[in-house]
């Protein structure tokens, strides 16, 4: 039986294969350009997390089979809540780590009990990058409250395409080029929290 799902799977498979080929070609081309670019500072793609709307495109438009975009945690911003809306599914029945209670479909958000503070349990939430596809679902959940999770292009994966396929597909123009020496952009709030801690 041909179903819409089968068609979609095949389409995704073909799209994914084509993307990998494209990535290799584009990576080669950008390397070529970089070689010719003389002294101009090298730049890489990054997401401005204050502009990103977690539309989902980051998961599916990257030329890599597995997106170079991952969710990341700003620990300074996270309130370490027990009922974390970035961890628990909207319809969760119990506050346990059972798969059906988790918001992340791939189980990439890990929850670890840290300590009890003022009689309230506190948890650390950590993204297991190898399991994250960059869909942004946890980011949206977290943004409803504290907003410590956000999406980021991870440069151990990104092949720095000349024309980033996600940047073109991004509806909010959140992608921009940043100096390769400072390849990560933090949320303004996260930056302020980190600076507060440092001061």
């Amino acid at each position: 039986m041909t179903s819409a799902t089968n068609r979609q799977d095949r389409r995704q498979f073909l799209g994914g294969g084509a993307r990998t080929v494209g990535a290799m070609a584009l990576a080669g081309f950008s390397g070529f350009l970089a070689g010719r670019s003389g002294k101009a500072e090298e730049t890489v793609w990054q997401i401005d997390p204050d502009v990103c709307t977690t539309c989902g495109n980051c998961a599916t438009y990257c030329v890599l089979d597995e997106s170079a975009v991952k969710a990341v945690q700003c620990f300074d911003l996270c309130a370490m809540c027990d009922p974390c809306p970035g961890y628990f599914d909207l319809s969760h029945q119990e506050r346990t780590t059972a798969a059906e209670n988790q918001l992340c479909p791939t189980g990439a958000v890990l929850r670890t009990f840290i300590a009890e503070q003022a009689g309230v349990p506190r948890f650390e939430y950590y993204i297991e990058e190898k399991d994250c596809i960059g869909c942004g679902k946890c980011v949206e959940g977290c943004a409803m409250m504290n907003g410590s999770l956000y999406l980021q292009v991870r440069h151990d994966r990104c092949v720095n395409c000349n024309q980033c396929a996600i940047a073109i597909a991004c509806p909010s123009q959140a992608f921009r080029r940043v100096p390769a020496s400072q390849p990560y952009l933090m949320k303004k709030k996260a930056l302020a929290a980190t600076q507060r801690r440092g001061s």
Binding site: V51, C52, G147, S172
Partner: peptide
């Protein structure tokens, strides 16, 4: 949707 995330917070 289509609002920046910082606006959601």
């Amino acid at each position: 949707v289509n609002e920046s995330l910082s606006d959601h917070e």
